[in-house]
Simulated assay, not measured.
Amino acid sequence: MSSALDRPLPADPDPWAVLRGATRARVALGRAGDALPTARELEFRAAHAAARDAVHQPLDPGVVRAALDSALGAAQLPGAELVEVHSAAPDRATYLQRPDLGRQLAPGTALPRVGADLAVVIADGLSPRAVHEHAAGLTTALLQRLPGWAVAPLVLAHQARVALGDAVAAALGARAVVVLVGERPGLSSADSLGVYLTWDPRPGRVDSERNCVSNVRPPHGLGYAQAADTVAALLGAARSLGASGVVLKDEGPALPGS
């Protein structure tokens, strides 16, 4: 007959389990001797490879167009014209080495001057993968929240930095620009989309004159609805104030699911 002393003791609960369940950051990885366990090392290398691939993956206009058509149709919104532009960076290698060229339109670029309230620029940035996966959903959610706004034809920008949106919007004659751009990949987020809003856009604007909503990547980051709510609210406030950037504060909820 066994006694309570003969029974195995329950394993100690993992004190890091709660934290690991709340973040995709690498915490409490353990060790094997003086190194990481093999599984954790392989996970790190796979994440690093995914980040590198996201930076170098070419932007596929066909993927973006198909995703937009599907998302807009599902939301019962009219189809959107998609105009393609290129920055002054002729290829990916130059784009990565010369950030200044990614902020300028390629010589000879012609855009129709439509005089709209808003220009929406979808830019590959440092993660075309993020654009492929999230731009259509976020663009659709944003357009649903902007009744009464005259929106210029959507612009798809190759080899683009955030500031390229200023040149695009100025050429279109738009009062504001929203740039959806693939953010710099991290080791836990190779598909994160950022949103940058600028009122009265024109070449020469600086980052302090913009507002940013980052890490749009459901289900691990901001969802499309919450990000679109925030951007739409910022646009309305920018129109009332006549400015964006440090003078315009986002006082809405900031946590996913709130």
Results as ranks from 00 to 15, higher is better:
residue 149 W to S: 01
residue 123 A to L: 02
residue 154 L to N: 03
residue 188 S to R: 12
residue 1 M to T: 15
residue 22 A to K: 13
residue 234 L to S: 03
residue 97 Q to H: 12
residue 31 R to K: 06
residue 28 A to Q: 10
residue 31 R to G: 04
residue 70 S to D: 10
residue 230 T to W: 04
residue 214 S to W: 05
residue 114 V to Q: 09
residue 249 K to H: 15
residue 146 L to D: 01
residue 121 V to W: 06
residue 145 R to F: 02
residue 28 A to L: 11
residue 141 A to R: 02
residue 34 D to S: 14
residue 131 V to L: 08
residue 116 A to V: 00
residue 217 R to W: 06
residue 178 V to T: 01
residue 256 P to R: 15
residue 9 L to H: 04
residue 123 A to P: 01
residue 108 G to P: 05
residue 151 V to R: 01
residue 94 T to Y: 06
residue 137 G to L: 00
residue 41 E to Q: 09
residue 180 L to Y: 06
residue 173 G to C: 14
residue 45 R to I: 10
residue 181 V to M: 07
residue 168 V to F: 09
residue 112 P to D: 00
residue 245 G to C: 07
residue 200 D to N: 15
residue 127 S to F: 11
residue 187 L to N: 06
residue 115 G to V: 04
residue 243 A to S: 14
residue 92 R to Y: 07
residue 171 A to H: 02
residue 255 L to G: 05
residue 224 Y to W: 02
residue 139 T to P: 00
residue 195 V to D: 04
residue 137 G to Q: 01
residue 29 L to K: 09
residue 166 D to R: 15
residue 185 P to K: 03
residue 38 T to Y: 07
residue 224 Y to V: 00
residue 28 A to C: 09
residue 213 V to W: 07
residue 50 A to D: 12
residue 232 A to T: 00
residue 120 V to N: 00
residue 191 D to Q: 10
residue 205 R to G: 12
residue 184 R to Y: 03
residue 115 G to N: 07
residue 198 T to K: 08
residue 120 V to T: 05
residue 239 R to T: 05
residue 122 I to H: 00
residue 162 V to T: 15
residue 27 V to G: 05
residue 249 K to I: 13
residue 235 L to S: 13
residue 190 A to G: 13
residue 56 H to M: 09
residue 94 T to K: 06
residue 125 G to T: 14
residue 242 G to H: 11
residue 6 D to C: 15
residue 112 P to Y: 00
residue 232 A to K: 00
residue 165 G to F: 03
residue 48 H to M: 10
residue 236 G to E: 11
residue 170 A to E: 15
residue 221 G to T: 10
residue 56 H to Y: 07
residue 130 A to M: 12
residue 146 L to W: 01
residue 188 S to F: 11
residue 45 R to V: 11
residue 237 A to T: 07
residue 138 L to S: 04
residue 40 R to C: 10
residue 39 A to F: 03
residue 169 A to L: 11
residue 160 A to Y: 12
